[in-house]
Design a protein around this nucleic acid. Structure first.
Lengths: 208, 208
DNA sequence: GCCGTTTGGCTAATGCGCGTAGCTTTTTGG
DNA sequence: CCAAAAAGCTACGCGCATTAGCCAAACGGC
């Protein structure tokens, strides 16, 4: 009975490979059985290295978020303002294209009450900080930074999600549409940072 | 052995109830066993009315998409331009808040090659047509309509997704952030429709 | 009203994935 | 060299989807 030489890290690495091999649904389809098969080991053996499937998924998410943050961060070095924002968004989308399964892993939310999710909350915050840093370059009023960050995250994440999910059915150039979205975000953030432009109206009607 | 009086429609209705009862993860957690329990019937009995869990999920998605489309559509009657766009987006978000499980159901993509997904593709198109109709009111050049539709969908869907997923951790007023996003989208679409404003540059660097 | 057929339930059983228990072998370190 | 820890394994139980085959209820024509 030779040993397989596994370790917690090795198992997580294999899990990431499984996720990567599974396309956009790779994360949803992640299974201990697949990881075990890839490791050449019986499924229960994995429990020597990992607490549960949920734990393993959490670890994969951690890696994915850290990866994405690193990609986004390194894309913005040496850039500022609109340039940085475009680079950030482009890197974000590129990462999602290159690793759709991992990008999906990124979307699981950390439970604020679950201590096991502490590290997850942490890396999530770091990820958002990259966006914050880029937007700071626009000289936004402090109380508008959050709004701008949320708008940028919403736009980019929404675009990528719809794109990966097959939501953009028309053959029309998706890259151009993304460029248009970026124009809107850049213009919108810029406008937010120049006082005197239209203030935000008190929320009308349909959104409480 | 009294009969339960089920029917395909009744089963789907129960499935929707299960989804609604499950919060944001209600769709992911949808299970034949739960539907059967709610129907007061053994699980295999459901196969007299539905082909498979996948089929049932598809039916739920159909209902959810149609519902969302109806809500969005009726929110825009009698409105035009920015007003209509704000109402549309608000209704979209309201629907997601009111029925998070169903909204999640909405996100499954129709497989272009799968004949079983034909109706799904259909209702998806109808849904997008509502957005198209609203944006037509901005007098966009024909070849920009797609870009605008995609940006609006991305922004609203992304915002709602992040919001429901717990992605907006800061306690800061989320309604206001949504209003800011809408400002950006309105301004962006307006700019797109006035020729002479900055043309879209050829995609730079990071997005191929 | 009666009978045959269709229909809508049921139970039994299979397969698969997670997870636990307990055994055995390898590795390690004293 | 030996004991204890570590890393495998098999066997098992659970929940869920799905298939097969049985049986009673409802229905339609006579």
């Amino acid at each position: 009975m030779p040993r397989a030489g596994l370790s917690p890290d090795a198992v997580v690495r294999l899990a990431v490979e499984v996720v990567d091999a599974g396309g956009p649904t790779g994360f949803a389809d992640l299974t201990l059985a697949k990881v075990a098969a890839k490791a050449g080991v019986a499924a229960p053996s994995l429990y020597k290295h990992v607490g549960s499937l949920a734990d393993l998924r959490r670890e994969v998410t951690l890696i994915a978020v850290r990866d994405l943050t690193a990609a986004a961060s390194s894309a913005t070095v040496g850039r500022a303002g609109a340039d940085a924002l475009r680079a950030l968004a482009g890197a974000w989308r590129d990462y999602a294209h290159a690793h759709p399964g991992r990008y999906a892993a990124t979307q699981i939310g950390a439970d604020p009450d679950n201590p096991a999710d502490a590290r997850l909350r942490e890396v999530g915050t770091e990820s958002v900080q990259v966006v914050v840093a880029v937007l700071r370059g626009f000289g936004l009023p402090d109380d508008r930074v959050i709004d701008a960050v949320r708008a940028v995250r919403a736009g980019v994440h929404g675009f990528v999600t719809l794109e990966l999910g097959g939501g953009y059915r028309m053959r029309e150039d998706v890259d151009q549409s993304f460029a248009v979205l970026l124009d809107m975000l850049v213009a919108g953030v810029t406008a937010l940072s120049t006082p005197g432009s239209a203030p935000v109206r008190d929320t009308t009607g349909s959104h409480r």
